[in-house]
Design a protein around this nucleic acid. Structure first.
Length: 453
RNA sequence: GUGAAUGUAGCUCAGCUGGUUAGAGCGUCGGAUUGUGGAUCCGAAGGUCGUGGGUUCAAGCCCCAUCUUUCACCCCA
């Protein structure tokens, strides 16, 4: 039976050119990670559901891909659950594994499991795919890559600072103009405290996070529907609409949140980080944005988000400090801070701006035309030498018409073609054709190597 | 998860109020006196009109279901 070829919703194939472009992004990010002293690790695509569940909030649990147990999985399940339609509990009995939703939670699990083999502070980076059962949209896929860097086991705000410098370096190398936004969960807590709703922190942050998108009136409406009274909403207003430079914002906040110890701590942290980063050390802009909340509820301190200045596509990088993520795995008192580059969105941005350097897309440098067995032998000898010199070389595998062989080189974007036929064999030379200009000349193998390398 | 739009050759799309063998451009493959690509000309292949039902003498076009993609919400990279 023939099946129509298809891939699951929200997943993609990548052609050679696309893969080359993506690798350019991964390599750039990875290079910068290493430059700042991060070491790469890998973790499995699947984790135990017990590791994943409950770490991303209720929404997150729904978006987890679950893996059906193998073997006779029905015998262990409680049949009455089928009838009751309690899918959550039924799923728990049918599945014990799930695909990872991000790289941070598996990393926390990794740290706890390997705590005796790790020297702290531990700086790790990780570039791997993650999966979310979200409904796909533009810039939103069910399988996508995250490029994470985290520092765990250090409270120092130097770490936040280094991450900001690293974000700046990555986007400078990629040539993308970005705006880095920073906030602090402690400030958000302080705000909730100050207006008298410390228990409604999540509702408040979710609402003010939308300020950019839906405007003040709608934010207020949402707050109101969540049970926040008008007086509190009025108090919130000057905070979320706060304008001006970072110093000004901090000064205002200091006055507003004076009564909240947590809030003051958050302000202090932001101030320290800004001071360490310095005024003119970034190519990106770095602004305090009090409406930045970020959904992931494990963040406890500084939070960051990066937006491209020239393309509208949601955030392309995000991160923050999480004080006790390893606590749920039985290891308390370890603080971490990390960022995650969204490679797939960066890819979309780079495509729109067409910012790939020519050499990142380079493939085969030179191709030898095939004229038959005798000529190929000679070409193989030349090719071996070129490859030794690190030049990517290929031989056309069949003695096809020259037109076809040239067409192949052209389609593949190979810049040089070497012709070794009867005449060249006799004289011990090679005819080298520059595909861009169309010029060709007789050269020796040494001259050829010199020209194309 | 909620609401909406979309689906015709590999790609981008035509296809009138339902009416004979469903078209174009690009791409692919082959050719234009056998050692030369990207231009031009000639020719060919390629579609169970997303899938499954239904209405009709007749369906690419109408109805229902389902899947895909896209958009908004939710949430997020």
């Amino acid at each position: 039976m023939k099946t129509k070829p298809a891939i699951p919703k929200g997943t993609r194939d990548f052609m050679p050119v696309e893969t080359a472009k993506r690798n350019y992004i991964f390599n750039t990010i990875n290079d910068v990670f290493h430059l700042f002293g991060f070491q790469e690790i890998e973790t499995p695509a699947m984790e135990n559901l017990s590791t994943l569940m409950g770490k991303y909030g209720e929404e997150g649990d729904k978006l987890l891909f679950k893996i059906l147990n193998s073997g006779d999985f029905t015998s262990k399940a409680d049949k009455s659950l089928w009838e009751s339609g309690d899918t959550t509990r039924l799923a728990a009995q049918l599945c014990e594994k799930g695909l990872r939703y991000d790289l941070t939670v598996p990393f926390a699990r990794f740290v706890v499991m390997h705590r005796n083999e790790i020297t702290f502070p531990f700086k790790r980076c990780q570039i791997q795919p993650v999966w979310r059962a979200d409904r796909p949209q533009k810039g939103r896929y069910r399988e996508f890559y995250q490029c994470d860097a985290d520092i765990i086991g250090s409270d120092s705000l130097m770490n936040e600072t280094e991450l900001i410098l690293m974000i700046d370096e990555v986007f400078a190398r990629l040539g993308i103009r970005v705006a880095i936004k920073m906030n602090n969960r402690k400030i958000l807590s302080g705000i909730a405290e100050t207006i008298g709703y410390p228990d409604k922190l999540t509702d408040i942050t979710v609402a003010i996070d939308k300020f950019d998108k839906i405007g003040l009136d709608n934010v207020n409406a949402e707050l109101s529907s969540k049970g926040v009274d008008d007086n509190a909403i009025a108090m919130l207003r000057p905070i979320i609409t706060l304008q001006g430079d970072n110093d000004g914002k901090l000064a205002t906040l200091r006055k507003t949140l004076a009564a909240s110890e947590t809030g003051m701590k958050g302000i202090e942290e932001l101030e320290t980080i800004l001071g360490l980063v310095g005024k003119d050390n970034l190519r990106a802009t770095l602004d305090i944005d009090l409406t930045l909340a970020r959904g992931l509820n494990y963040y406890t301190g500084a939070i960051f988000e990066v937006k491209a200045a020239d393309v509208a596509i949601g955030s392309i990088t995000g991160g923050g400090r999480y004080d006790n993520l390893t606590g749920v795995f039985g290891m308390d008192g370890v603080s971490g801070v990390g960022i995650s580059f969204g490679a797939d969105r960066i890819y979309d941005v780079l495509n729109q701006l067409d910012l790939y350097p020519e050499q990142s897309l380079r493939t085969t440098r030179i191709m030898f035309v095939n004229f038959g067995e005798k000529e190929m032998k000679a070409a193989m000898g030349y090719a071996a030498g070129l490859r030794n010199a690190g030049i990517s070389t290929e031989l056309y595998p069949e003695c096809a018409k020259m037109k076809k062989q040239m067409g192949y080189a052209d389609a593949k974007g190979i810049p040089f073609v070497a012709i070794v036929g009867e005449n060249e064999l006799a004289s011990g030379t090679i005819t080298l054709k520059d595909m861009a200009s169309g010029e060709q000349k007789q050269v020796t193998i040494d001259e050829l190597t010199e020209i194309i390398k």
